[in-house]
Design a protein around this nucleic acid. Sequence first.
DNA 1: ATCCTCCCCTAC
DNA 2: TAAGGTAGGGGAGGAT
Length: 1161
Amino acid sequence: MGSRLEKKSAEVRKRIEGHSFTGEDGDEYEGSTFGGFPDYFRRKKVKLQNRDADIRAHSGDKPQIFKGVVAHVMGYTQPSLQILHQELVSHGAGFLQYLDGKTMATHIIASSMPPKKALEYSKYRIVKPAWVMDSISSGKLMPWSDYRVIQETPRQNVIKLDGGKMMSQATQPSPLRYREQTQNSFYTNQLQNAARSQAPGGSSPFATPRLPPRLQAVESIEDIDDVDEDMDDGGVDLLNYEDSKKASNKPVEELPKETPVPAEKPENAQEIPAIARPPRDKVEERPTVSFPPVDLEKPLTSEEHNARLLADPHMRKSSTANPEFLKQYYSESRLHHLSTWKAELKSKMQRLTTEKGPAARTIKRKPGERRYIMHVDFDSFFCAVSLKKHPDYVDKPTVVAHGNGTGSEIASCNYPARKFGVKNGMWMKRALELCSDLKVVPYDFPAYEEASALFYEAILEIGGVVQSVSIDEALVDITSIVMSAAGSKGTGVSEGSIWREQEKADEIALQVRQRVKEKTGCDVSIGIGGNILLAKVALRKAKPAGQYQIRPEEVLDILGELKVEDLPGVAYSIGGKLEEIGVKLVKDIRQTSKEKLISVLGPKTGEKLWEYSRGIDRTEVGEQTIRKSVSAEVNWGIRFINQEEAEEFVRNLCKELERRLLNEGVKGKQLTMKIMRRAADAPLDPPKHLGHGKCDTFNKSVLFGVATNNAEFIGKEAVAILRAYKFSPGDLRGLGVQLTKLEPLKASTTGLDGSQKRLNFGSFAAPPSAKKQKLESIEDFESPKKPKPVPKEDLDPINDDPLTPRKPKGHPALALSRATAADVHATTPLNVGGTQFIMPTNPDPAVLAELPLDIRKHFVKPSKNLALIASESREPSPALKSRTNSPAPAPAEIPPDIDPEVFHALPEDVKAEILASYGPRRGQSVLPQSPRKDRVILHPQKPRTPTKRGGIRGMFNRTKARERQSDANAGLKQTNFLAGKKRAQTEQAMDGLDEIDPTFLDELPEEVRKEVLADHRRRKAQRVGLNIQKREPAPQRRHDSGEGQAKLKFPGKPIKVSFTGSGLKDLSEIKDMLNAWHRETETEGPHRDDVAVLEKYLAKVVKQERDMEKARKVVKWLEWIVEEDDGEGKGKRAWAAAVEDIKAAVQGAMRERGLGEMVFG
DNA sequence: ATCCTCCCCTAC
DNA sequence: TAAGGTAGGGGAGGAT
Ligand SMILES: Nc1ccn([C@H]2C[C@H](O)[C@@H](COP(=O)(O)OP(=O)(O)OP(=O)(O)O)O2)c(=O)n1
Ligand SMILES: [Mg+2]
């Protein structure tokens, strides 16, 4: 499936991400009066330029047979483009002037189409012009298939709705089919689950921290707990659609409808962390582990499940329920230790190298000079060290692990154990299958540090250039030592000198091995080669307890027989891609052209492997690098029973992050929040004890205007992001915070002496200047940094299994209805209100239902890019209208990217499908707001191109590889513009704006287009929508400088503007609007109210969207526009003043957030 | 062509 | 029971 799908998905994802969402309640998310500047302008422009609207307006009562159709005419046609356009539009169709590949055309009209193009557009319905004309003459929509330009092919990747079932016609040959089936049934299954979920309550989990939202849990899936995660691809039973439909219709009532249930105190209350309190009485009743069977009937919410789980003191102690969790966890996490040690060692070695520096070390290598590199590594490091305290196990198969349960991971195994096939990183379960009487010895981190310190002492004694690879391994460039000892230059070919060099190298290695053995009692092995790659390859041959030097003449032979995975950097995924092209051994790589490798693996990787296969590796030992990120994350033991716990945990993570930042002496400008959430089809209890199990991952980043290392500040931002996702706290499985775009702390405040634990390298302590240099080097590097773009967000749902259905509470359709019930105009948490882009007219459900799924999705959430078709709020669906006043905001379950009106117009089963295809998970039940969450799983059936990543391996067995995958779909929009729940009344009055007719950008007047293009060469110009209303009777139009001042208005709904993920997009859109606004009021000056609107918007950007860079750019842009204005008069002066006011407003917002003054540049 | 963002992948 | 962290290389695809 290729790039097309991939692209689409990315696009849709972005689009979705771009959506703004309203926040929940809370000060932070106060209602805004200004839904969206961009949206506002767009509407205005739309109105002015809307030709299609005119056409429709003059179309009299022609039958709207093309309602729901969005057409695009391609190539020469008969009748002409103009006529087709006219006819289509006047009969109800939407029209796209051109496709950009991301649009949502439903039909392409063409007389003919070359194969290549046909393929490109294979997902559209490509019909002949006659379809249009015949439909018109017959007064009804003719079946498009009778007018196909291209005959259907078996592999066409069009998704069809088969009855209620969504099936994908594989694009991929067979392998995917089974998968699709699985997926299909999978989501079906979810529907059933959804059915059992509860009715929506009225409260938000955030509103009342003590009350966990009641979300339904995945029921039956629990029974499948044991499914091996590595193989659980099809673990969920397939259910047929009918069944699920049935199921979804009844159970709703079985569940308590109650909304929030008051928290009650369990008997053992004192044992449960304060806030945590499951809402259900069941919990209280059972302090310990055993619970009544009743549970099977009513699935527990994940919070309830966690509450029960944590009722066991042991569990509580090892999970996040323990306030000391972070500390405890990190003290026991081998991977954390490994990472920490590595960072410290790397830094330390770099420092030493720098110091010794210029002198001996920094050797300027002459081209062609031979090098002698040693790769030194302990054998079974953890195991060997731990065995020193358990000498009796030395010759027995032994491993280091925390326990002997099935889910315990083996950090290290000795060679006797390896004979059975046991490997590092393997789970105990598997290891025991391979070797039933495996001995398990405990970790001894302090001992590892000691052994390592001694090891590095020995390494440093050599005198070569050292690069730390990890706690137990290092690279040493001994070239200069060898050369001087051998008295050679390193370039000659004298066999004598080469021999002497090699002898010297071997001698050094032997010495080191002996020294380390003496000091630590453990064996190290050493590989020696002419470069890093060869040293590593030699190391493999050296182990265990040996050394090996690869001589130049044997390089190709040795290398050739290795499996590609033996090369550094090649593992499962890349190995899979190579296997796909018939490359298994390194020598096979040599038979493959560099071009081929590059096309399959990418330029860098392709070339690198091409070289590796020939023994080439130019990387130098000891290259200096600077840290680019600092992060802290935990993906084990995460079991929350309410939102507050999760937030508290995030704050603690941020404190940890702050510690690390201080320790590194850096601050960062960009925060990335990483979230792992239980996959929809994953059991509440994963196979691994307190593990994360199969998850969807969501990452979202935000740019701060200024670099920071403040835990409180970062914590606020992180929590805001977490909240924005509105995940059920009980489903969280992993959380992390990362800071990037680092800057050195002020030299004065060097935070070098962080409290963090450091390795103690007594003897080879770094020279005095060490610390300082570190900072300086950072500074040097960083100084040239330039401010960057904007915030970004992103998230993804899994696509592996694509569908991670979300479970709405109650019958999906019901949930939806309820969602809509919320007053769209009011708070609309859902993006629903958005008019954003919707179909030009109400899409005919029937037509919609028939669309290929991917196209349908576009409807649902058209891309901003696309021409926006406006929504039709003109004829609000009855459903919408009627429910306008529901007190509780709605629930939310309509995916934010779906237009509610469109949604409601759909047949129930289709609604269910859509819901199911959307994010995993439950609707957050009670949330009044929308869920913006997103899940986009866009192409449920599109299993991320298997081609890439993983190759063959990616197609099967992917479960394992992606247990932790990041779902690339869900998109959270980062902007939280929440439209306030209470919009000013004036705004409400403006809701009428929603009724503006939609239009397509490309229809903008030439002048506008040109202007925009000229300004920027931004292509999106066409999208600009402008809607300026004169306050007075107004003279008019755009470019005449009428006297009436233009008045900005609020969009009726929250901004749905597509703030697409990349702030840049939003920015371009905003810029276009600013251009238009300025142009319109150039001579008159902006209207004060409009300026206020922009100020308010920017304040929002700063305070809510938290995108300082964007705010800065917007202001700068406006300033530039104004400066460019050649005029002199009042208009220019008024504009200049406006710019100042706007700047002041932004500064005000910055201050409110506790940020410093913004430098607009 | 180059840069940038958002991931994926890899290593220990 | 169990402690599934963390940083950097680099690819895909969009923006410039
Ligand atoms: N999946 C892994 C891999 C390694 N390690 C830890 C334990 C190892 O002892 C140490 C060093 O890793 P090595 O790859 O060097 O493996 P060993 O030293 O155990 O064995 P050898 O080097 O003999 O292959 O890192 C770990 O905790 N988990
Ligand atoms: Mg080792």
